[in-house]
Design a protein around this nucleic acid. Structure first.
Length: 178
DNA sequence: CTCCGGATTCGT
DNA sequence: CGAATCCGGAGT
C-alpha cells in the first residue's frame, strides 16, 4: 500500500519508526528502509533549527516531500518531510535493503542516495507520486525495531544527542553501523 | 566578506 | 585519524 499524505502529516516521532520496513521507489529503483533518524523541528541538530534558508526550504514545505541536501562537498542525503507545512521536521534515511535495480552499497545516508540515484534534482519533490513514493511494510514480517542515539549529532548538546531518535531493524545487515 | 565545520565515506 | 571538497551560517 502506497503511503498517503496523511501518513506523513504527523509527528516525526511517530512517522520515523513507522518508516522502518517501508519500501522506497525512485524511478524504478526500489529498496526497503531499514534505518532512519528523526529530526524534530526544535532539535538543534536539525538543519531547520536556525530558520528557513534556500538550502532547507523543502523541510518547511508540505509533508510527504523529499528534503535532499548536499554535504561534505561530495555527498547527498535524503529526508522525508513530516508534520504540517511550516513545521520543519524530517526523517533522515540511513540504511536501505536493495529490492530492485539497486547498484552498489546502501549502508549510510550518502551511499544510500548514490545507490538509488538520488541527488539534488529530487529535493522538494512530492513523495506521494507515481514514480517516486513509499509503500507500507507488508505487515506479514515481524520487525524488531531497535532505538538508539543518532549518529554524528554530539554538537546538538547532551539532551538531543542522547535521545533515542535512531531506529533500525535488529540484525539487518544493511544498517549503517552497530 | 572571511572563516569554520558538517545528519559522510574511504583510505592510512 | 586525516583527506576530499562545497557551501550554509555565524561572526567580523
Amino acid at each position: 500500500m502506497k503511503l498517503r499524505r496523511s501518513f506523513f502529516a504527523r509527528s516525526v516521532h511517530d512517522v520515523a519508526p513507522e518508516l522502518v520496513g517501508a519500501t522506497l521507489l525512485v524511478d524504478g529503483v526500489g529498496g526497503k528502509i531499514v534505518e532512519v533518524e528523526a529530526y524534530d523541528h526544535e532539535d538543534p541538530a536539525a538543519h531547520s533549527f536556525h530558520g528557513p534558508t534556500a538550502r532547507n526550504a523543502s523541510m518547511f514545505g508540505p509533508p510527504g516531500h523529499a528534503y535532499v541536501y548536499f554535504v561534505y562537498g561530495m555527498h547527498w542525503c535524503m529526508n522525508v518531510v513530516t508534520q504540517a507545512e511550516g513545521t520543519a521536521s524530517a526523517v533522515l534515511l540511513r540504511g536501505l535493503e536493495p529490492v530492485k535495480n539497486v547498484v552498489g552499497r546502501t549502508q549510510g545516508p550518502a551511499l544510500l542516495c548514490r545507490a538509488m540515484g538520488i541527488d539534488g534534482r529530487l529535493n522538494g519533490r512530492d513523495l506521494v507520486g507515481d514514480t517516486f513514493f513509499l509503500a507500507a511494510p507488508s505487515g506479514e514480517e515481524e520487525l524488531r525495531i531497535v532505538r538508539r542515539p543518532r549518529i554524528g549529532v554530539d554538537y546538538a548538546g547532551r539532551h538531543w544527542a542522547r535521545r533515542l531518535l535512531r531506529f533500525y531493524v535488529h540484525g539487518n545487515p544493511f544498517v549503517s553501523r552497530l
